[in-house]
Design a protein around this nucleic acid. Sequence first.
RNA 1: GGCGCGAUGGCCGAGCGGCUAGGCAGCGGUCUGCAAAAUCGUUUACGCCGGUUCGAUUCCGGCUCGCGCCUCCA
Length: 471
Amino acid sequence: MIKIHNTLSNKKEDFLPLNLPNVKMYVCGITPYDETHLGHGRAYVTFDVVRRWLVESGFKVTYVQNITDVDDKIIAKAGAGCQVSGIREVAEKYIQAYFEVMDQLNVQRADKYPKATEHIIEMIKWIESLVVGEFAYVVEGDVYFEVAKFKDYGKLSNRKLDDMKSGARVAVDERKKSPLDFALWKAAKEGEPSWDSPWGKGRPAWHIECSVMSTKYLGEQFDIHGGGLDLVFPHHENEIAQTEAKTHKPWVKYWLHNGFVNINKQKMSKSLGNFFTLKDIFKKFDPMVVRFFLLSTHYRSPINYSDQELDNAKEAYGKIMKFIADVDFIISKTTEHAPSVERKDMAEDFLPYEEKFKAQMDDDFNTAGAIAAIFELIRFCHKTIESGDREKECLTLMKEKVLGLCGVLGMRFDNSKIQTFDSCEIEELIADRETARKNKDFKKSDEIRDKLAKQGIIIEDTAQGTRWTHA
RNA sequence: GGCGCGAUGGCCGAGCGGCUAGGCAGCGGUCUGCAAAAUCGUUUACGCCGGUUCGAUUCCGGCUCGCGCCUCCA
């Protein structure tokens, strides 16, 4: 049984989807007005793993992620007097940039990426029904949701209307009945892209698209809605209000939120200017190392970013990579009739590690614990190999098991840096060195090693012979 | 002011009422001509003060410190 921490109850709950074996999940996507940063990376890697694990567990998952392609910041970027085509151009550029880094992080594509600007009519209809139902009111071309009318307001973020310090940090709009009332539709200002509506020219406000698009593609009730912790309030709280006010039924069953990426214990954010784009991070670190780093902490805990911690992740990830390469090498040097220990139940030996992995993942997607299980499995394999059990079949199984578990976490291993056997010159030098070593001419053998080292080739003498890798 | 989260060994980081998490770094051994890699062992930690309990890092209360949300934000 998978257990999931639900923000709605603030507890871990057994995961029972509404309509077995289907799981419908919606994750708040990006507003494409700038480069994707590590905070985004964490969110989408988190939900990528959630999705992968649900699929692995036998559920049929439908994953929808929206794209907010109309917003103040996009409009600002597109410049004064921009039309709809102008903001589309900006959005398109950053959507492409987003997919590029997500591909590098091996984040699987969602089934659908609906865009706000392609659902204007549906949004208008939704807002109209809220106005008719008296949950919303119109002021000078703006439409606001009246929070006081929705009795459950605050149930997700666990706050009471009276307790909130509205206006403490931002000026209150006097035209609203309550400072907490939020916009559903915004009247167009001079030179802004806009659409026609019953309230005049304007554009949808932020929250409404998620209600409209999620229910359009997943139904009026669905299983999982995810996003960063910073979306709990007001975004998700408002989404619940405007959705349940219209449908009169409980909307989302499980709300999941990932923790922040911190820099020196402070939240990474655009306004603080302490953010790192994935593009820049990838100049220094392999995307898979970044993914490993992200998964080495539970998704709800804050994760601190620094080069030092990425270096640590690099070493740890490298250890897995090394294991795969080691096994490949031994397999390549193992003949079909290699002496083998009598062993018919190798698969059984792996079971405890696979079970631990599963238990960790079932427990609210504890990737840190799951990674520990992978390391324990690797240690077991090393021990087995050391003990002399090098049957080809057994080695292949080891590799498959480790790769399999890593694959569930979306970690892939690029072996291009590992020995390829096609470099004759290097092979010759290594052969020369072997001869020298046999003749105890260590001076010469060390010279060859140094020479190769200068070319960035690292020599490793193993029981199965000498191998080399690129540094 | 309201609400919430956290404090684990040199560092990162899981976890649990009593049983080795894991990774990185360090130290020692094995292996190796040496080196590297691998492997084994190892340093025995849970912010402070009380309470519950046969027993608490793990539960309860208080405190201290840190962080987050109450504005757009993954």
